[in-house]
Design a protein around this nucleic acid. Structure first.
Length: 262
DNA sequence: AGTACCACCTGACGGC
DNA sequence: TGCCGTCAGGTGGTAC
């Protein structure tokens, strides 16, 4: 699931639930998730602390626990958070758990084990170290245009590269290009300034709508293409069949009459 | 530099 | 029913 809107939804959920709760202990049920770090090591830093604030950059979520550092969460393809009372609710895919003194548990659910959780000093160094570009939801237009101008290749892979703009994945870059009427295989360098500006505006619009609806496809407007994914759907604008193609070995959905290649 | 393919994993689904 | 191939909203490595 997790692209920018999903991660933002998880972060808001975290703020409503686990934030400011005193940590009793953390439990590692898969060392794959923690990059080999043991429960003991993590507890040394986290025990008796509380997460004081949260943040997000692209698809990464940060939970700060004071001057000591920040817990970084990356959800992979299948991750999400759950907060519930009592240990009975813990399921087989809950791979990392934070037990709070109030008897509640924050579970990092990660079926495919492609997610990661680790501790860092601060988020800014991490973003720099990872070479992440500016966050897609907060980037300004001039920066966006400059970054897109720097990319060769298809506009879709330009949007998806996290060292350019950070936060867009396969689903939402398809949606943005559909809303903008741009073919995903159009070469980024062929885009005119007004087309880039349109993509920028549609990016903000799509992300805003998706966050408002908690990244739940069922609640998104009927004008969104992503509702038609995986079901041989029709273009919500012209009614023609949605087309599929591969870009960087990922399936891209688009409408061949509303999105013309240049 | 861009793209194509593989790997990491588990599970759902369609075809036979 | 069961087995098998394929695919899935991410990232990182390698080879052309």
């Amino acid at each position: 699931m997790p692209e920018l809107p999903d991660v933002e939804t998880f972060r808001r959920y975290f703020n409503r639930t686990a934030l400011r709760q005193k940590i009793k202990t953390v439990e590692v049920r898969s060392k794959k998730i923690t990059g080999g770090a043991t429960q003991k090591t993590l507890n040394r830093k986290l025990r008796d602390k509380a997460f004081k604030s949260s943040d997000r950059h692209g698809k990464y979520m940060f939970a700060e626990f004071g001057k000591e550092g920040v817990m970084v969460l990356h959800f992979g393809m299948t991750g999400f958070l759950r907060y519930f009372k009592g240990k009975e609710g813990i399921g087989p895919h809950d791979k990392f758990l934070v037990h709070f003194k109030n008897r509640y548990v924050l579970a990092f659910n990660n079926r495919r084990l492609l997610g990661k959780i680790f501790l860092k000093k601060n988020k800014d160094d991490f973003i720099k170290e990872k070479k992440l570009g500016p966050d897609a939801y907060s980037v300004d237009y001039d920066t966006f245009r400059r970054l897109l101008r720097n990319k060769k290749g298809s506009v879709k892979s330009a949007l998806m590269k996290q060292d350019g703009i950070s936060g867009l994945g396969n689903i939402y870059s398809d949606e943005i290009l559909f809303q903008a009427g741009a073919h995903p295989k159009t070469h980024a360098e062929k885009l005119k300034d007004n087309e880039i500006e349109n993509i920028y505006k549609k990016m903000k619009y799509v992300l805003k709508k998706a966050i408002e609806q908690k990244a739940n496809p069922d609640d998104l407007p009927e004008s969104f293409l992503l509702k038609e994914r995986d079901k041989e759907g029709k273009c919500p604008r012209c009614g023609k069949s949605v087309k599929l193609t591969k870009i960087n070995s990922r399936t891209s959905y688009f409408c061949s009459s509303c999105q013309v290649k240049k």
